[in-house]
Structure formats: structure tokens, C-alpha cells
């Protein structure tokens, strides 16, 4: 039975064709009134945010405080990875010049060329996403800030003239609402749990707050965040904003290290087939 399954022609893979062509069935022509270079740059911003934070979250795999959190963090990492793939693929279609050139005959698809063959100075993610995980409180606090902002960003994209971006947003907003709820629930739990957990979450917030302005969140996002802070009995820290320039491709050492690890196998086999 099992050997038939493996050798047979029936292509019945887990997760189906989702992994094959992220843009299958969507009209991928870039509308005339959109600047393709600007669209590609914007897709890289959102895509790199998702890719880099997904990479960080997946570091928790087999290390989370309990099995339920291990599974949830992997889920969130998988959602963001899926968003990253759609967005990087979109960037490559909109403006092929953003895709690094590889040796002739390299079978590497565009999404992988973008993920594995760009240097840190070509990534457009915000600084917050690249910072090391820290403890569970830091991971949760970052996820809260990031997903509150990103959910609002995706909601504003639902009516975007680019059909692909609008489709990505429609799929992603449901995922992001779950991420936000997961993070908010844990943020409140930690803030009101024990003295130790409260201390840790306040430390995490104080450290991450400097990177909040880089997201440039609209006012309604600030309102949502304040609601979570109120439930957690936490106030906005008084912190000088960091000069976050991730959107202009200026990054910390942490991104260099993250990419060195992430890209190591792909770069060792530039003609490899995976």
C-alpha cells in the first residue's frame, strides 16, 4: 500500500499545489496606472518583513514554553512565510530587475533568488523584525506590535488597484487577525500573570518601543494598541525612538547573521535543484 503510494503517479501531496505557484489563477498583469518599480519596492518591504520575522519565529520550533505555543508559533511563521512567497514573487513579476542574477542554467525560481541571493543591504524589512528573539515576552511583544500594524496595512490594501496585492491582503488579513489575537492574549497574560512575567514583558516593551515609530502606524492602529495596553495595565514607555532605516536597506548585524544562516545551503549549491 505504502510503496504504491510512493511510486504511483497519483500526485496527492500534503498542502497541495499551494507550494507550487503562489500566483496560479490570479491575473498578474501590472495595471497600466501603477509604477512597476514602486510596486516591486513596496512588495519587497512587506515581503521582507514577513520573511525575516517568519525566520525568527521558526527559531522557536522545538523550543517553545509548551507544545501548544510551539505549534502556534510555527503556524504564524508558516503564515508569514506564505505571505512572503506571494509578495516576493509579485515583486519579481512587477520589476524583474530586482531579482539577483544567477549563473546561467540555474534552476532557482525568482522567490528563492530574492530570498537567498540578495545581500543584507538589499533587504527592506523594518528593524524590529530582524532583532534576535530574546525571551518569550520579547517574541510576543514584537509579534503584537508587528501584527497590529500589519493587519491595518493589509486592510488598507484590500482595494488596491493591483489585483495580486489585493488578493494577498484578503488572504493575509485573516491570518494576521489570528496572530494579533494570539499575541494580545499572551501579552495580557504575561503582564498580569506573575511578578516575573510582568517584569519581563515590561522590559520587552521598553526595548522594542524604540522601533515602533519605524512602522509609521496610522492613528487607528495606535488606538487598538492602547486597548491591549489597557487590558494589560501597561502604559506606553518613555523611550527615544531608534533611527530605524530598514526601509532604506540599512540594517543591524542581526540581519547579517540571520541571512548568513538562512542562505548557507542555497548558496552552497547555486545550481542545485530542491
Amino acid at each position: 500500500m505504502i510503496s504504491d503510494d510512493l511510486l504511483g503517479s497519483e500526485a496527492h501531496w500534503a498542502f497541495g499545489t499551494d507550494f507550487e505557484d503562489p500566483l496560479a489563477g490570479v491575473d498578474t498583469t501590472v495595471p497600466d496606472d501603477i509604477d512597476p518599480a514602486a510596486l516591486a519596492r513596496y512588495c519587497l518591504m512587506l515581503g521582507d518583513d514577513a520573511l525575516v520575522l517568519s525566520q525568527r519565529l521558526s527559531e522557536w520550533c522545538s523550543r517553545a514554553p509548551d507544545l501548544e505555543e510551539d505549534i502556534a508559533l510555527a503556524n504564524i511563521a508558516l503564515d508569514l512565510l506564505g505571505e512572503a512567497r506571494l509578495l516576493l514573487a509579485r515583486a519579481a513579476v512587477a520589476d524583474p530587475s530586482v531579482v539577483p542574477s544567477l549563473p546561467d542554467g540555474s534552476p532557482v525560481p525568482a522567490e528563492d533568488a530574492l530570498a537567498f541571493f540578495r545581500s543584507p543591504a538589499e533587504f527592506r524589512n523594518v528593524t524590529m523584525t530582524e532583532l534576535p528573539n530574546g525571551d518569550f515576552a520579547e517574541t510576543i511583544t514584537r509579534l503584537l506590535l508587528f501584527s497590529v500594524w500589519r493587519l491595518a496595512e493589509f486592510e488598507s490594501l484590500l482595494t488596491h488597484p493591483d489585483a495580486v496585492l489585493a488578493a494577498v491582503a484578503a488572504k493575509g488579513r485573516k491570518e494576521l487577525a489570528y496572530h494579533r489575537d494570539f499575541a494580545a492574549r499572551w501579552f495580557v497574560t504575561l503582564a498580569r500573570g506573575t511578578a516575573e512575567s510582568r517584569r519581563r514583558v515590561l522590559t520587552a516593551l521598553a526595548g522594542l518601543w524604540a522601533f515602533w515609530p519605524e512602522l509609521d502606524a496610522p492613528a487607528d492602529v495606535e488606538v487598538v494598541l492602547d486597548q491591549v495596553f489597557a487590558a494589560a495595565d501597561v502604559s506606553r514607555p518613555e523611550v527615544t525612538p531608534a533611527r530605524g532605516l530598514g526601509r532604506e536597506c540599512v540594517h543591524t548585524e542581526a540581519l547579517t547573521d540571520l541571512l548568513a544562516e538562512m542562505q548557507s545551503v542555497a548558496r552552497a549549491h547555486p545550481r542545485g535543484l530542491w
Partner: peptide
């Protein structure tokens, strides 16, 4: 296998591997 999630050589393989290792956590549960 979890050791290779961070270094999976394509985004598709990364997703497959992460989902697999996550399944194993579910099996444990």
C-alpha cells in the same frame, strides 16, 4: 530535522519542513 528549518534551501522546502516538524508536535500532543 528542526535543525534545518533555518537553512532550508528554498522557501517551498522551508514551508514543507516547518509544517512537518509542527505536525510532529501535534502528534506528541
Amino acid at each position: 530535522e528542526g535543525d534545518w528549518i533555518s537553512r532550508a534551501p528554498s522557501l517551498r522546502r522551508k514551508a514543507i519542513l516547518l509544517a512537518k516538524v509542527q505536525d510532529e508536535a501535534g502528534h506528541g500532543l
